[in-house]
C-alpha cells in the first residue's frame, strides 16, 4: 500500500508544480472536466448506469452558481455550494424518474430529460439565452485570497478536484461501493440478497450529479461565464468519451481520458473547425470497436500479464 500512497504523493507534487510549466487556465479546465468524468465514471464504471444527460448537472450548477455570484452577490464558496446544491436537487429529480427503467431506456430517459432542461435554459431569462451568463466575478476565497489571480485560483481548483477525487475514491472502496459493483455485475442477484437496489442507484446518481455540478460550477468560476454548450448533449457525449477512452471502471481512467480530450480539443479547435466533431466521433468508434478497456484499462491488463509471466 505504501507504494500506492507514494505514487499519489508524487502525482500531487506534480499537480502543484504544473502551473509553472503549463498555462494554468488550461490545466484548470482539464481538472474540472476530470472531476466531471470521475463523477460520471462512478455511475457508468462502478454501477453500470449509462447516463446520457450528465451535462445537465454540469451546466445547471454553472448557471445557478453564476447567478448566485453575479446577481445575488454571494461569496464565492457559498455560490459554488448553491450551484452544487442545485445539481444535487436536479439529480434527485431526474434520478428518481430514470431509475424506473433499465439499460438502454435509462440512457434515453436521462438524455431526454437533459434536453428538456436545455430548452428550459434556452428560454429562461436568467441564463441570458444564446449569449449565456457573462461577467461573473470570481471574488475572494473566505474573503482573504483574491481569486482573480490565475495562480491563486489554480490551487483552489486543485483543492476542489482533490476533494472530489478523494470522495469518489472513498465511495468506491467503501461497503457502499462494493454494493454498487454488485449491482453492476448482477442486479437480480443484488436484489435477491436483500439490497434495496433502487435506493442505492438513486443515492449514487445524486452523488454523481452533485460532483458533476461541483465541477460545472468550478469551471464557470474559471472562465467567468456559463453558456448553453455546458448543458448541451454534445458535452454529455464528450464525458462518456472521456471515460471510455481513459478506461471505465478504473480510478484514473477518466482523469487520463479528459486530459487527452481537452488537450486535443484545445489544440485542434482553431485548426480544423467543425471537423473536431468528426474526430471525436471517430475516437468513439475506434474505442468501442477495438479498445473497450480504455488507456488505463489496457495498461493495467499489460501490467497484470507481465506480472503473471514473471510468476
Amino acid at each position: 500500500m505504501s507504494g500506492q500512497r507514494l505514487s499519489y504523493l508524487v502525482l500531487l507534487a506534480l499537480a502543484l508544480a504544473l502551473p509553472f510549466f503549463v498555462y494554468p487556465v488550461l490545466v484548470m479546465k482539464v481538472l474540472c472536466f476530470a472531476l466531471f468524468a470521475c463523477a460520471f465514471n462512478l455511475l457508468l464504471g462502478y454501477t453500470g448506469l449509462l447516463s446520457f444527460g450528465h451535462a445537465t448537472f454540469f451546466g445547471t450548477a454553472g448557471y445557478v452558481a453564476g447567478h448566485a455570484l453575479k446577481v445575488w452577490g454571494l461569496p464565492t464558496e457559498l455560490g459554488l455550494l448553491v450551484g452544487t446544491g442545485a445539481a444535487l436537487a436536479l439529480g434527485w429529480l431526474i434520478g428518481s424518474l430514470a431509475i424506473r427503467r433499465q439499460g438502454i431506456y435509462f440512457a434515453m430517459i436521462t438524455l431526454a430529460l437533459a434536453q428538456m432542461m436545455y430548452f428550459f435554459f434556452l428560454q429562461a431569462s436568467f441564463t441570458g439565452g444564446e449569449d449565456g451568463l457573462q461577467g461573473v466575478p470570481r471574488g475572494t476565497l473566505l474573503g482573504v485570497i483574491d481569486l482573480a489571480d490565475d495562480l491563486h485560483l489554480y490551487y483552489f481548483v486543485l483543492a476542489v478536484f482533490v476533494f472530489g477525487f478523494w470522495l469518489i475514491y472513498r465511495t468506491i472502496h467503501s461497503p457502499f461501493g462494493q454494493i454498487l459493483k454488485a449491482i453492476r455485475e448482477n442486479e437480480a442477484r443484488a436484489i435477491s440478497l436483500g439490497y434495496d437496489v433502487a435506493r442505492y442507484k438513486l443515492l449514487v446518481f445524486v452523488l454523481s450529479a452533485g460532483l458533476a455540478g461541483l465541477a460545472g460550477a468550478t469551471k464557470m468560476l474559471v472562465f467567468k461565464f456559463a453558456t448553453l454548450s455546458d448543458a448541451h448533449w454534445h458535452l454529455s457525449g464528450e464525458v462518456v468519451l472521456m471515460t471510455l477512452l481513459g478506461g471505465m471502471g478504473t480510478v484514473f481512467g477518466p482523469v487520463v481520458g479528459s486530459s487527452v480530450i481537452v488537450t486535443l480539443q484545445n489544440e485542434l479547435a482553431d485548426k480544423v473547425g467543425s471537423l473536431v466533431t468528426v474526430i471525436m466521433g471517430s475516437i468513439f468508434i475506434v474505442c468501442v470497436l477495438l479498445f473497450r478497456r480504455g488507456i488505463v484499462g489496457e495498461i493495467a491488463a499489460l501490467y497484470k500479464r507481465a506480472l503473471g509471466e514473471r510468476a
Binding site: L50, F52, I104, A107, G237, V240, L244, S274, L275, V276, T277, V278, I279, M280, G281, S282, I283, F284, I285, C287, V288, L289
Partner: peptide
Amino acid sequence: LLLTFGLALVLEG
C-alpha cells in the same frame, strides 16, 4: 448506443 453515437457525430460533423 455508443458506437452509433460516434457515427452520428462523424456524419453530423
